[in-house]
Nucleic acid binder design. Sequence first.
DNA 1: GGCACCAATTCCTTT
DNA 2: AATTGGTGCC
Length: 744
Amino acid sequence: MDLSTLNEVQREAVEAIDGPILVVAGAGSGKTRVLTHRIANLIENYDIFPSGIMAITFTNKAANEMKTRIESLIGPVTSQMWVGTFHSICVRILRRDSDRIGYTSDFVIYDTQDQKALLKMCYKELNIDDKRTPLKTSQFKISAAKNDMLTPDLYEGRYGSDFREKGFIELYHLYQSKLKQNQAMDFDDLMLKTIELFKQNREVLTYYQNRFKYIHVDEYQDTNRAQYTLVQYLAAKSRNLFVVGDADQSIYKWRGADIRNIREFEDDFPGARIIKLEQNYRSKKNILDLANSVIANNPNRRDKNLWTDKEPGEKIGYYMAYDEKDEAKFVVEKIRTFTREREYKASDCAILYRTNAQSRSFEDNLMLNGMPYKVIGGLKFYERKEIKDILAYMKLVVNPSDDVSFQRVVNEPKRNIGAKTIEKLQAYQLERDCSLLECLPFVSEIEGIGAKASKGLTEFYGIIDRLKSKIETDFVTQIFDELLQSIGFIELYEAEKSVEADARIDNIYEFRTVIEEFEKRNEEPNLRDFLAETSLRSDQDNIEDQEDGVLLMTLHASKGLEFPVVFLVGLEDTLFPSFRATDDPEELEEERRLCYVGITRAEERLFVTHARNRNQYGRFEARHASVFLSEMDKALLENFSESRDSMNFETEKPEKKHNYFAQNALKSKQSFFGKPSASNAVTATDVSDEAERRYGAGTKINHKVFGPGLVITVDSDGETLTVAFDSCGIKKIHSGMAPIKRID
DNA sequence: GGCACCAATTCCTTT
DNA sequence: AATTGGTGCC
């Protein structure tokens, strides 16, 4: 094992073997190197069995990367090691022993949507009005309670005397008992139930304590109370706990992360060693200096000095846009220049924003220019209706107790089963004390269910029952194919003959590919594990390395990643920092850390942008610059804006009146830039005629990225075409810029 | 029970 | 702007 590639401090961390160790790892300081080398070192030089090592990461992607990198150091001995996220490791533990806490090993995992559906049922039963108490509020409150490790009983013990909490306590109790009835756990339960298992079964805990002699936790600053406790349990015996984190990168307080976990590590583990990695290997000096100038404004921060011996590099590009369209135009223009000059590939560039909704303007502009891109997060693949429906069927096949999935798909496709029929079923269910699905063999006994509904229910039961018998013998893809056949989704969507329905069909086939890949990856693939893996996939897990395309994602999703070129966009007050942070100093500090995370993702080039106006809720509103811009060291910025005084953030005030002359001047300038370069003397009408002639409505075209399509309309500007593509539906593209050709 | 149309609401971040 | 849920009619 070669440790000579590490710097002195890194080597010190790698060679600290026993006892509690905290590595304070600044952004880009090589913490993954340290983690992988330490584990490789344990195995190779200290004869620790791989089976005695656990490493907890933040995403599955990080886990896989870690495994690969350890293997490249010492060869393939890592399969015995447990490397995964908190959630996936908990599932692994629970699958073995969940029967001890009243769950079968086939329990399913409820995502946010399922959780909502279950809460809705609870509301109905308790007569709670979702206008007065929005589902989201209860959902959030339950999650907060669980992050704080308060079970319904504990919560009642603490807040029971408060009459205002009475309703919530009742709801929480019911929600939790319904989860169990459905043999389901929500995300937070995975941790809580594991802790419960350990608490009630000391021999189970002892087994894991004896087995895992060396425990590692990455991104320790973002652990919540429950995760913290779990780690305490696991490491209590060996005390060989190695955690890595950076308080400046703590960005998940709203999800229960407690920054104190890292700040008070020394108090929790007296005699702990603390090692600080302060040399940054990722970013050029200007970028690092900019990051430091921003984070220095956080008052409650332990001073830390992240440094680099790299050259300053280019200055940080700054652009004040007219609106979000102009902002996107600037960013895409820069990326096009980079790719044209072969300075960077599209996939070297990342656009980072505060909220998912911001991706829109960038997608539009990238599309217009025929530039490949990939949006991470947002409406996730697995949250699309058609996929969720198929997943619900699958969940039901594995776990007949799942009433939430039952209600989701019993009438999907239409089987003449409505609210009335469900009510009848539920009444019968109470009598029999079983799940909804389990009532179905006795449909004929239930009064009030008509012939039509009865037929539908029997049909539905047949589908699930038939698949259930194949679960042990057939491949997941075979089960999928048969399921698809029996529910006839493809034919159903085909009959709709709409672009949306066609997209759904594509998604369904895409989903089949996902299953195929799952089967290739696993030695003993089964439906149960596939469902768990699907539920626990993170956004980052969807980033594929080989694809070329600009990456678009939220700042949160960018955590732990790095890119040669970063565009940090939408630096506007009430957007970033969020409007919720305006009068909460703690929130503002977290937003600032988020800004710090964003800046430090960049290796070579960084651009920061904001818009003076923005469309929100369909309204066009004036905005002003983010406080973070005013905190940035001006000497590091290079102004790309048209207005020269745009960098006086402190003096900038929102405009009272729109300056129409200025706006019009800017607008005409924009469309000037947008025109195809060849025609320097043509008027707008000429261009329109030109495009009309070349790509009039009804023209068949071929697009380099999206393939064949049909032009539906030509916009009044004469340049923007609305095209229906076979591959991806309706898109707007730019006739002068997009890589398209007529097909005659 | 299904479908069409209208109104309200949403945009903070996620395993 | 766009999606989602509710209401009322067939």
